[in-house]
Protein backbone atom coordinates (compact mmCIF):
# COMPACT_ATOMS: atom_id res chain seq x y z
CA UNK A 1 0.00 0.00 0.00
CA UNK A 2 2.79 2.36 0.95
CA UNK A 3 4.43 1.67 -2.32
CA UNK A 4 1.30 2.44 -4.12
CA UNK A 5 0.89 5.78 -2.31
CA UNK A 6 4.53 6.66 -2.85
CA UNK A 7 4.22 5.80 -6.48
CA UNK A 8 1.15 7.94 -6.92
CA UNK A 9 2.88 10.88 -5.22
CA UNK A 10 5.89 10.59 -7.43
CA UNK A 11 3.61 10.35 -10.42
CA UNK A 12 1.78 13.48 -9.38
CA UNK A 13 5.02 15.39 -8.80
CA UNK A 14 6.31 14.20 -12.08
CA UNK A 15 3.13 15.32 -13.81
CA UNK A 16 3.38 18.76 -12.28
CA UNK A 17 7.01 19.18 -13.10
CA UNK A 18 6.54 17.97 -16.60
CA UNK A 19 3.81 20.63 -17.37
CA UNK A 20 6.00 22.64 -19.69
CA UNK A 21 4.50 25.22 -22.08
CA UNK A 22 6.54 26.40 -24.97
CA UNK A 23 5.58 30.06 -25.58
CA UNK A 24 6.97 32.69 -27.84
CA UNK A 25 6.55 35.51 -25.36
CA UNK A 26 6.38 39.18 -26.05
CA UNK A 27 9.81 40.52 -25.09
CA UNK A 28 8.67 43.63 -23.31
CA UNK A 29 11.96 44.22 -21.59
CA UNK A 30 13.92 43.86 -24.76
CA UNK A 31 11.53 46.19 -26.51
CA UNK A 32 11.98 48.61 -23.65
CA UNK A 33 15.72 48.48 -24.13
CA UNK A 34 15.34 49.01 -27.86
CA UNK A 35 12.95 51.86 -27.26
CA UNK A 36 15.39 53.51 -24.92
CA UNK A 37 18.18 53.22 -27.43
CA UNK A 38 16.13 54.58 -30.29
CA UNK A 39 14.74 57.39 -28.21
CA UNK A 40 18.27 58.26 -27.10
CA UNK A 41 19.38 58.32 -30.68
CA UNK A 42 16.51 60.51 -31.73
CA UNK A 43 16.87 62.81 -28.74
CA UNK A 44 20.57 62.97 -29.38
CA UNK A 45 21.51 61.31 -26.13
CA UNK A 46 24.38 58.81 -26.06
CA UNK A 47 23.12 55.27 -26.40
CA UNK A 48 23.18 53.33 -23.17
CA UNK A 49 24.01 49.68 -22.91
CA UNK A 50 21.04 47.43 -23.18
CA UNK A 51 19.57 46.67 -19.84
CA UNK A 52 20.17 43.17 -18.72
CA UNK A 53 17.16 41.02 -19.24
CA UNK A 54 15.77 40.21 -15.81
CA UNK A 55 15.70 36.73 -14.53
CA UNK A 56 13.00 34.66 -16.06
CA UNK A 57 10.17 33.44 -13.94
CA UNK A 58 10.62 30.06 -12.51
CA UNK A 59 13.94 30.64 -10.80
CA UNK A 60 12.38 30.44 -7.39
CA UNK A 61 12.58 27.05 -5.70
CA UNK A 62 8.93 27.18 -4.79
CA UNK A 63 8.01 27.77 -8.32
CA UNK A 64 9.12 24.35 -9.16
CA UNK A 65 5.55 23.42 -8.61
CA UNK A 66 4.25 26.02 -10.99
CA UNK A 67 3.73 25.20 -14.62
CA UNK A 68 6.92 26.05 -16.33
CA UNK A 69 7.04 28.42 -19.24
CA UNK A 70 9.93 28.07 -21.59
CA UNK A 71 10.74 31.40 -23.11
CA UNK A 72 12.01 31.53 -26.63
CA UNK A 73 13.70 34.91 -26.42
CA UNK A 74 14.22 36.15 -29.92
CA UNK A 75 16.98 38.51 -30.85
CA UNK A 76 15.26 41.77 -31.52
CA UNK A 77 16.01 43.13 -34.92
CA UNK A 78 15.89 46.87 -35.13
CA UNK A 79 18.36 47.39 -37.92
CA UNK A 80 16.26 46.68 -40.94
CA UNK A 81 16.41 49.26 -43.72
CA UNK A 82 12.91 50.39 -42.84
CA UNK A 83 13.78 51.01 -39.23
CA UNK A 84 17.07 52.65 -40.08
CA UNK A 85 15.44 54.95 -42.60
CA UNK A 86 12.71 55.92 -40.24
CA UNK A 87 15.14 56.51 -37.40
CA UNK A 88 17.31 58.62 -39.63
CA UNK A 89 14.35 60.74 -40.60
CA UNK A 90 13.25 61.11 -37.00
CA UNK A 91 16.73 62.02 -35.86
CA UNK A 92 17.08 64.63 -38.55
CA UNK A 93 13.65 66.01 -37.83
CA UNK A 94 14.29 66.20 -34.12
CA UNK A 95 16.68 69.08 -34.61
CA UNK A 96 13.72 71.07 -35.86
CA UNK A 97 11.36 69.80 -33.21
CA UNK A 98 13.59 70.23 -30.19
CA UNK A 99 13.22 74.02 -29.96
CA UNK A 100 9.44 73.64 -29.89
CA UNK A 101 9.69 71.00 -27.17
CA UNK A 102 12.08 73.20 -25.21
CA UNK A 103 9.75 76.19 -25.52
CA UNK A 104 6.73 74.20 -24.47
CA UNK A 105 4.84 74.72 -27.67
CA UNK A 106 4.88 70.99 -28.25
CA UNK A 107 4.28 68.31 -25.67
CA UNK A 108 4.37 64.54 -25.51
CA UNK A 109 1.03 62.83 -25.23
CA UNK A 110 0.24 59.83 -23.12
CA UNK A 111 0.62 57.54 -26.14
CA UNK A 112 4.04 58.90 -26.92
CA UNK A 113 3.08 61.08 -29.81
CA UNK A 114 3.68 64.78 -30.22
CA UNK A 115 1.00 67.36 -30.03
CA UNK A 116 0.89 71.12 -30.23
CA UNK A 117 0.31 72.23 -26.68
CA UNK A 118 0.08 75.91 -27.48
CA UNK A 119 0.76 77.92 -30.59
CA UNK A 120 1.06 81.18 -28.78
CA UNK A 121 3.83 83.35 -30.05
CA UNK A 122 4.33 81.41 -33.26
CA UNK A 123 3.48 82.89 -36.62
CA UNK A 124 0.97 81.17 -38.86
CA UNK A 125 3.58 80.04 -41.32
CA UNK A 126 5.65 78.48 -38.56
CA UNK A 127 2.56 76.81 -37.18
CA UNK A 128 1.92 75.15 -40.52
CA UNK A 129 5.51 73.96 -40.61
CA UNK A 130 5.23 72.74 -37.05
CA UNK A 131 2.06 70.84 -37.89
CA UNK A 132 3.77 69.19 -40.82
CA UNK A 133 6.72 68.28 -38.63
CA UNK A 134 4.51 66.78 -35.95
CA UNK A 135 2.40 64.88 -38.45
CA UNK A 136 5.49 63.46 -40.09
CA UNK A 137 7.03 62.61 -36.74
CA UNK A 138 3.91 60.90 -35.44
CA UNK A 139 3.51 59.05 -38.72
CA UNK A 140 7.10 57.87 -38.51
CA UNK A 141 6.76 56.81 -34.90
CA UNK A 142 3.70 54.72 -35.65
CA UNK A 143 5.37 53.20 -38.68
CA UNK A 144 8.46 52.52 -36.65
CA UNK A 145 6.42 50.52 -34.17
CA UNK A 146 4.84 48.63 -37.03
CA UNK A 147 8.16 47.87 -38.62
CA UNK A 148 9.65 46.69 -35.33
CA UNK A 149 6.65 44.46 -34.80
CA UNK A 150 6.85 43.09 -38.33
CA UNK A 151 10.59 42.59 -38.30
CA UNK A 152 10.45 40.68 -35.06
CA UNK A 153 7.54 38.47 -35.76
CA UNK A 154 4.77 39.90 -33.65
CA UNK A 155 2.86 42.14 -36.05
CA UNK A 156 -0.17 42.12 -33.78
CA UNK A 157 1.73 43.73 -30.92
CA UNK A 158 2.03 47.21 -32.39
CA UNK A 159 -0.06 48.71 -29.64
CA UNK A 160 2.08 47.15 -26.94
CA UNK A 161 5.22 48.42 -28.63
CA UNK A 162 3.72 51.88 -28.85
CA UNK A 163 2.90 51.79 -25.15
CA UNK A 164 6.49 50.82 -24.30
CA UNK A 165 7.91 53.47 -26.58
CA UNK A 166 5.54 56.01 -25.07
CA UNK A 167 7.13 55.41 -21.70
CA UNK A 168 10.58 55.91 -23.18
CA UNK A 169 9.61 59.09 -25.03
CA UNK A 170 8.24 60.46 -21.79
CA UNK A 171 10.88 59.12 -19.41
CA UNK A 172 13.68 60.47 -21.49
CA UNK A 173 12.02 63.79 -22.13
CA UNK A 174 14.23 66.64 -21.08
CA UNK A 175 13.53 68.71 -18.06
CA UNK A 176 11.16 71.48 -18.92
CA UNK A 177 9.31 69.58 -21.60
CA UNK A 178 5.57 69.17 -21.32
CA UNK A 179 4.02 65.77 -20.78
CA UNK A 180 0.33 65.07 -21.02
CA UNK A 181 -1.23 63.88 -17.80
CA UNK A 182 -3.79 61.16 -17.30
CA UNK A 183 -6.62 63.66 -17.57
CA UNK A 184 -5.28 65.27 -20.68
CA UNK A 185 -3.69 68.15 -18.84
CA UNK A 186 -0.13 69.23 -19.46
CA UNK A 187 2.57 69.04 -16.83
CA UNK A 188 6.10 70.29 -16.96
CA UNK A 189 8.67 67.63 -16.43
Amino acid sequence: MKRLIRGLCLLAIGAVVSCVTINIYFPAEEIRGVADRIVDEVYGEPAKPVDKVPAQPGSSYLRIFEPTVAYAAPDLDVTTPEIRAIKADMTARFEQLAPFLDSGHVGITRDGLLEVRTAEGIGLKERAELTRLIKAENHDRLRLYKEIATANGFPDKVDEIQAIFAESWRDKARKGWYLQGAKGDWQVK
Binding site: G123, L124, K125, R127, A128, E129, T131, R132, K135
Partner: peptide, 9 residues
Protein backbone atom coordinates in the same frame (compact mmCIF):
# COMPACT_ATOMS: atom_id res chain seq x y z
CA UNK B 1 -3.06 88.63 -45.33
CA UNK B 2 -2.38 85.15 -43.99
CA UNK B 3 -4.35 82.00 -43.38
CA UNK B 4 -3.63 78.72 -41.66
CA UNK B 5 -5.55 75.48 -41.81
CA UNK B 6 -3.81 72.63 -40.09
CA UNK B 7 -0.59 72.14 -42.03
CA UNK B 8 -1.59 74.47 -44.85
CA UNK B 9 -0.43 78.04 -44.77
Amino acid sequence: TEALLDSWY
